[in-house]
Nucleic acid binder design. Structure first.
Lengths: 161, 161
DNA sequence: ATTGCTGCAAAGTGTTTGCAATCTG
DNA sequence: CAGATTGCAAACACTTTGCAGCAAT
């Protein structure tokens, strides 16, 4: 198990620091330059546990701080998504909604109250469904799964009114 | 089992005619009027098996035929989505991507070659995952699952070059 | 006849791009 | 110093809305 991970029964939680360190590493490995505006985006996403839209990021970094401009934010998001460091999730928003993740095959487990996102590894979905589907001659190649619910902290702590 | 359905081991396939008939029924039951522009949208979606964006619909109905205008198309899509007759699916498109479906809890099984969409009923996902998740104190309330693969016809028939 | 629906035109958002100035390695 | 990157401004794309006329019940 790598640094920064907390493991429980196939479930993997990537901490803010861990995600940040790995993403920066990947950025440099890809030959990208180490600039302040990009770091601002990575810092912000690392510390964000809830799903977010590009505009939320723009509001936080461009307007409030002048840390990064809209085009840079969109370009950085595009890179992160292409490389698997963030993923789009289903949402009723009119804009694309992202969550941070790690590259590879995982599933998101999202708390609908605090928005905390867990990463689920060791997926057995296909094992469970492939038999039923192959009986109708369908060959499964991949899937998207997002789970929604309430995490322990949100059930314990009184939600703010 | 209702008309127009083909059933195989928890899998449910809604035919174009079946979907169309049910959606129109629901539209009237909701007190909506029976207008030609709306019918054009329903007809088009019924006969469409692959995922589509609003703009594809606009291109087909507004520009080519003058059957329905952009605002009407968007308004009809919004109604259908709110009522569960179409669903947004994950996609790399920049616009929302829809597939037709039936109201209720189902999963989409989408062929990546021909785009045919099957509806999967009798979902056991949560039964399989809830134990693992509750061990970390996470209470699952719902989920989104989309399966991608290749259907029988596409493996049998030589795909067009 | 009433009331909802349509389509036009226009406005709102979300997202991308051309390009000169700037910064990194 | 060369080349990637930034940020501005503007363009572009997607989606929604106000409103006058039309159409379904």
């Amino acid at each position: 198990m790598k640094r920064g991970e907390a493991r429980t029964d196939g479930l993997l939680l990537s901490t803010a620091d861990d995600w940040h360190a790995r993403a920066v590493e990947a950025l440099l490995a890809a030959g990208c330059r180490n600039t302040a505006p990009r770091h601002a985006v990575l810092d912000w996403i690392a510390s964000r546990c809830t799903p977010f839209t590009a505009e939320i990021l723009v509001a936080a970094l461009e307007r409030q701080q002048g840390l990064s401009s809209r085009p840079t934010i969109y370009r950085t998001l595009e890179w992160l998504r292409a490389e698997g460091w963030i993923a789009r999730v289903q949402s009723d928003e009119n804009a694309h909604t992202y969550v941070r993740r790690l590259p590879g095959h995982y599933h998101q487990v999202i708390c609908t109250q605090c928005g905390h996102t867990l990463i689920m590894r060791g997926c057995t979905i296909e094992h469970a469904l492939v038999p039923a589907l192959s009986s109708i001659d369908f060959e499964v190649h991949g899937h998207v799964l997002e789970l929604y619910g309430v995490c322990g902290s949100c059930r314990v702590e009184q939600p703010a009114p």
